[in-house]
């Protein structure tokens, strides 16, 4: 579980506009950012964070365990492989439009070395009150409060909406994990359910899926093994077949990837499935009695 680690964060692509902007935000929130990397720009500092030319140089001085990648899509593969090669334990790949073959190469290497990869095309992780790695507005107190509900979402915008609703209903998050909207991502719903099940600080899990692929169906099979309730919402019930709905992974092909198939699989395994996002908090209140 993310919350269990004392994180030491590396920012790859720290000198870019986005990298620099979010480094300041993450630091202000209290995230321990120990170093940054931009090839050719070593020696300077960004918001007080020392910048190095390579992951290896940053690793030698600071031993980071988590890297967040603010690098453009064509550079993601090499940046990720550098981080894995140096021994980082967890990567957050934010970029959209990373070629899928590159993602497969990164994931193959990560799997072999037991490295966790979140994303690509994801908003990152927030552990309220502790740290934020990515581009969610962790500082928004109406969205993120320390609590006991684990939230995992393919979408940042839908995740934000449900978190706002939850906080208003009196809940807080043990962690928010944005796993990303691409057809192939590292951490899956099933992985997140396993992490939340193992996390003593989590009492219930909210899972926000969407049309496309079979990740939700695969996760459903794990629910009977869980001691904690799962509340789910699947976006795209009204999505037409054969059209990509914004995310590269959000496409229904025949009956494959349809919202119906996911909702049926989740209900069959005991998940509580909301019809609209606002029902998620209602279901949580019923389950956790708050």
């Amino acid at each position: 579980m993310p919350a269990d680690n004392a994180v030491r964060v590396l920012v790859q692509g720290i000198t870019g506009r986005e990298g620099s902007f979010w480094t300041e935000r993450m630091k202000q929130y209290g995230t321990p950012i120990v170093a940054g990397v931009t090839p050719g720009k070593g020696g300077r500092a960004v918001h007080g964070v020392p910048v190095y030319d390579s992951v290896e140089a940053a690793w030698n001085g600071h031993a980071p365990d988590t890297s967040v990648l603010f690098v453009p899509p064509p550079a993601v593969k090499q940046a990720a492989l550098d981080a894995i090669g140096c021994g980082l334990r967890r990567l957050v790949m934010l970029a959209e439009h990373v070629p899928v073959h590159d993602v497969m190469e990164v994931l193959a290497e990560a799997r072999e070395r037991g490295v966790e990869v979140i994303g690509p095309n994801c908003p990152g992780i927030v552990v309220p009150g502790r740290y934020s790695v990515g581009i969610m507005p962790a500082w928004a107190r109406n969205m993120f409060q320390p609590g006991t509900v684990g939230v995992v979402s393919r979408s940042g915008s839908l995740g934000a909406l449900v978190c706002l609703d939850m906080v208003r209903a009196g809940f807080g998050e043990s962690a928010f994990i944005g796993i990303g909207g691409d057809p192939i991502v590292g951490t899956t719903f099933r992985d997140a359910l396993q992490q939340f099940e193992a996390d003593p600080g989590t009492q219930a899990v909210v899972m926000l899926g969407e049309v496309g692929g079979t990740m939700e169906e695969d996760a459903a099979a794990f629910i009977p093994e869980m001691s904690k309730p799962v509340v789910a919402f699947i976006a795209g019930t009204s999505a037409p077949e054969g059209k990509r709905m914004g995310h590269a992974g959000a496409i229904v092909a025949g009956t494959r990837g349809s919202a119906r198939s996911k909702i049926d699989a989740l209900r069959a395994e005991g998940a509580h499935v909301a019809d609209v996002p606002s029902q998620v908090s209602v279901l949580l209140s019923r389950l956790l009695g708050e």
Binding site: V211, G236, H247, V276, P277
Partner: peptide, 26 residues
Amino acid sequence: ANGAGLTMSTMDAVTFYGGRPANFME
């Protein structure tokens, strides 16, 4: 709407409450 997930959810909510969405536009 903004974002793929929220835009789809908005269409779904329109359908759920008995309306008919005219489009997806993110």
